[in-house]
Structures are given as C-alpha cells and as structure tokens.
C-alpha cells in the first residue's frame, strides 16, 4: 500500500515529509527518506550512522533492501530497537535499543543532551565539563 500519510517517530523526533510504504511488518523508504527519518545510510561496509557502521548479516539483505528501497522496521529489529506500529493512524515509533542504552550507562561517561531553558536558549551537559555537576530531575506534576 502506497501511503504518504505515514508518520515516523525516530530518536524522539517526528520525521516530516518522508515518503514511506508500509507492507506487513515492513516500512520501506528511499535512501534519502531513510537518512532523513533515521540518520542511517547504506555504505559499502553496511548501514552507517555517524561513526557507527553495522554490517548486514549474511542472508539478511533481502529483508532490508529491495530495489533501492530500505526496510527501516527490519533494520531497527536487527539493531534490537523496539518498534511500535499504530496501523489505525499510520504511525511508526522506533525506540532506542536497551543494549545500546545499557552499554552507554555502564561506560560511566555521562550521556550528553541539549535542552532549552525557559527563554528557549539551548544548554548542553557537555558545556559544564570541568565542573562538578548535579544533574537533577523535577516536574510540575
């Protein structure tokens, strides 16, 4: 089924204007769509994002690539990411893999983030390098 109305939530961001085709458990995108939605690109060494490259396991290429279309759902499953598909609304949500989160935390290197203050000014944890930081959560509720 061709469908321009698919929304893809990836890395907490909703990908806009990405043409995608949902087919059973697959979500197929063009190379450009794949990169815009998820940041992954296909290179000779496999699927790459930033400095990370993941080779395609032997015998798995057909699930992932057909005629220059790329199956983001299969790629996410290969990476251990949770995938939730709301069929009624045509929304796909890709979470972060538990293993990746756990590996990062066990390295004890504090994961960086960038968030706005009340005035909309962005702040990163990394800007505070050289200081002792108390990172503390709260909520209005």
């Amino acid at each position: 089924m061709a469908n321009k109305e698919i929304d893809i939530i990836y890395g907490g961001r909703v990908a806009a204007d990405v043409e995608a085709r949902a087919e059973d458990a697959g979500l197929w995108l063009s190379a450009g769509g794949l990169e815009r939605a998820s940041g992954w690109t296909l290179k000779p060494e496999g699927f790459c994002k930033g400095e990370l490259c993941v080779p395609i396991p032997p015998g798995r290429a057909a699930e992932l690539i057909v005629n220059e279309s790329y199956n983001l759902a299969a790629l996410a499953a290969m990476l251990g990411q949770p995938v939730i598909h709301d069929r009624e609304h045509g929304v796909w949500c890709f979470g972060e893999a538990a293993d990746a989160r756990a590996r990062t935390l066990r390295s004890l290197i504090a994961p960086d983030f960038t968030l706005p203050d009340l005035r909309g000014r962005m702040h990163s944890l990394g800007e505070q390098r050289g200081k002792k930081v108390l990172l503390v959560s709260w909520a209005s509720w």
């Binding site: 989160r101 200081k131 990172l135 503390v136």
Partner: peptide
Amino acid sequence: VAELYDMVNVPTAVWIDEQGRI
C-alpha cells in the same frame, strides 16, 4: 534525560565529575 539516565521518578539526581564521568 529520564531515558538516557534510566530515571523512573522525580527528583532523581546523578553526580557527574569534571571529566564528565558518572
């Protein structure tokens, strides 16, 4: 931040040193 640091409640705090280590 809750997801990055696996926090399930508020207020939760993490101590991070000058080198960015937990």
